[in-house]
């Protein structure tokens, strides 16, 4: 692994702030799903968020590109504040890519069309150029030979790699992953994680919601533990796994590291 991917305990990245969340709250009806979230993400940082299901991890990252709307507090992404202003939302969505647990590929389009669609309709690119870029990214996730296949013809791991390529080809500054390997068969998890490790080595700013603790140890600069909508604890991977401070973190780690 290259030196970029082996983080020291002190952050060695530049101080450019990519995401700044201050005092963010969100409710689903009566349910208080995010409670006073304060989080700063720097350029090139690789953050892993873990925690029990229902703890608000997915909601947190979905707030960053406005798939969910926060009700209190501020979220600033690369200098643009997230408000209901559609221009701001467009700007932020252009800079933030997201990969979903269920892939959410467009089933009526081929892998190549899944990638080139937004280049053509959002970036207003010529079709030939869009397809050239799309092919480059399919190459990068190691499945150029599947370009003309439809999602239904691909395995889960291949679909998730197409989904990663679809986000990447919009050239985002930040990539977010919402449990990218949870819907995959065990033998396919590695191929997706390999792609994510390569991405981390290239210096991409990443926020990953996952329970793959091996990935966290190998790649993350910082691990965040969430429970009941709060950030309970955050630390570099070594200290997080070796010396967890809060009891809830200890309990969670003992449960997931048992097997």
């Amino acid at each position: 692994m290259s030196d970029v991917a082996s983080p020291g305990s002190k952050p060695g990245f530049s101080s450019d702030v990519m995401i700044q969340m201050t005092g963010v709250h969100k409710w689903f009806g009566e349910f208080h799903v995010l409670k006073d979230i304060n989080l700063t993400v720097h350029k090139g940082e690789r953050i892993v968020i873990c925690g029990p299901s229902g703890s608000g991890k997915s909601t947190l990252i979905r707030c960053i590109n406005r798939l969910e709307e926060h009700q209190k507090g501020r979220i600033v992404v690369d200098g643009t504040e997230l408000t209901s202003d559609l221009k701001h939302i467009d700007t932020i969505r252009r800079e933030v890519g997201i990969v979903f647990q269920q892939f959410n590929l467009f089933p009526h389009l081929t892998a190549l069309e899944n990638l080139s669609l937004a280049l053509i309709w959002v970036r207003k690119m010529p079709k030939a150029k869009a397809e050239e870029i799309a092919m480059n990214y399919l190459d990068r996730v190691h499945i150029p030979e599947q370009a003309q296949k439809y999602p239904g013809q691909l395995s889960g791991g291949q679909q998730q790699r197409v989904a990663i390529a679809r986000s990447l080809c919009m050239n985002p500054k930040i990539m977010m992953f919402d449990e990218p390997t949870s819907a995959l068969d065990p033998e396919m998890i590695k191929e997706v994680l390999d792609v994510m490790v390569e991405l981390a080595e290239s210096g991409m700013t990443m926020i990953v919601v996952t329970h793959e603790m091996g990935f966290a140890t190998a790649v993350a600069n910082r691990v965040i533990f969430m429970d009941f909508g709060e950030i309970i604890e955050q630390n570099d991977p070594h200290n997080f796994f070796e010396n967890p401070k809060s009891d809830r973190t200890k309990l969670f780690l003992s449960q997931i590291l048992h097997h």
């Binding site: 798939l67 969505r93 890519g97 269920q102 467009f106 937004a118 309709w121 959002v122």
Partner: peptide, 18 residues
């Protein structure tokens, strides 16, 4: 059509009408 399709389209920057 699952809502995930809409979310994925929004996430790559497509507007609601597109």
């Amino acid at each position: 059509v699952s809502y995930g399709q809409t979310e994925a389209a929004y996430a790559v920057g497509l507007r609601p009408n597109r």
